[in-house]
């Protein structure tokens, strides 16, 4: 719809702006969330920054691994492609977790407490990111003519002339509600790691269902889409967190 905004002579992707606003709001939310475990605001901020650094490195590294055959095949464009784009979300996620964990490890802090305060902030950032997807036109929904149907203009990335289900906005709305729920769970829960588990199960479950209402071209593994397959793994990990198994492994083997 509005994939690019022009400010002076610069073309700036709307997704990037929304993602940046989301990240800013996530950092602001970390201030009240950190009070739950009496974590210093500076530590919460630095944990987030290490997460972002790890995320950028992870996203780029996995992109290089996934796209290595193409990069080797055309080395003359490889450097430009590396410099201008290419990032893999799941690499970013794994890298972000590793970056955050690395921070808690070197300064002898409790990683599970930090993950608990990070998940509401992550959900809020994701919600803004999905609004960015809506403006970008990607991740669009199935043809639908009911209330709230979206009609993209001619020339946009999604098919124009027909009504589409607002799959991006439905996910964004869910994530905003989930942020509030996670804050409530964080304040009421006495089990470290439960909030992280709740986030993984809830977001994985919604993503699994929401995938049925999406029509954009994306990969498939068997009869499931790639994200549904990954959602199942995420739900499994969330259930493990609720059963306190990762917490036990962390206390036994990984904590300083």
């Amino acid at each position: 719809m509005h994939p690019i905004i022009h400010i002076f002579d610069y073309a700036i992707p709307t997704f990037g702006i929304m993602f940046l606003i989301g990240t800013g709001c996530g950092f602001l939310l970390a201030i009240p969330a950190a009070k739950k475990y009496q974590i210093a605001t500076m530590d919460a901020m630095f944990f987030g920054l290490f997460g972002i650094i790890g995320g950028i490195i992870g996203a780029k590294l996995l992109y290089i691994i996934v796209d290595l055959p193409n990069l080797i095949a055309s080395p003359e464009t490889a450097l430009i492609r590396l410099a201008t784009g290419g990032a893999v979300f799941y690499g970013g996620l794994i890298g972000g977790i590793m970056g955050g964990y690395f921070y808690t490890h070197i300064y002898h802090l409790d990683a599970i407490h930090f993950f608990d305060i990070a998940v509401p902030c992550l959900a809020l950032a994701q919600a803004f990111g999905r609004i960015g997807c809506f403006f970008n036109g990607c991740c669009y929904g199935i043809p639908y003519e009911g209330p709230g149907a979206v009609h993209y203009p001619v020339g946009a990335y999604p098919p124009s002339g027909i009504g589409l289900f607002p799959a991006q906005l439905s996910e964004s709305a869910f994530l905003l509600v989930l942020t509030l729920l996670l804050m409530a769970v964080l304040w009421r829960s006495n089990t470290p790691g439960f909030t992280s588990g709740f986030y993984l199960v809830a977001s994985g479950l919604f993503r699994f269902i929401n995938e049925f209402f999406r029509a954009d071209p994306r990969g498939a593994i068997g009869f499931l889409s790639t994200s549904q397959f990954i959602s199942l793994l995420i739900i499994g990990l969330g259930i493990l967190f609720m059963l306190k198994i990762p917490q036990w492994v962390y206390e036994k083997h990984l904590k300083n």
Partner: peptide, 27 residues
């Protein structure tokens, strides 16, 4: 912090979409 944010805004795309295509290609 400002430098990282402004550089990322220029470089970032819809990472989720690119991510899905990349993972699908891997599998």
């Amino acid at each position: 912090i400002i430098g990282l944010a402004l550089c990322a805004i220029v470089l970032i795309a819809c990472v989720a979409c690119v991510g899905l295509l990349g993972t699908a290609a891997m599998f």
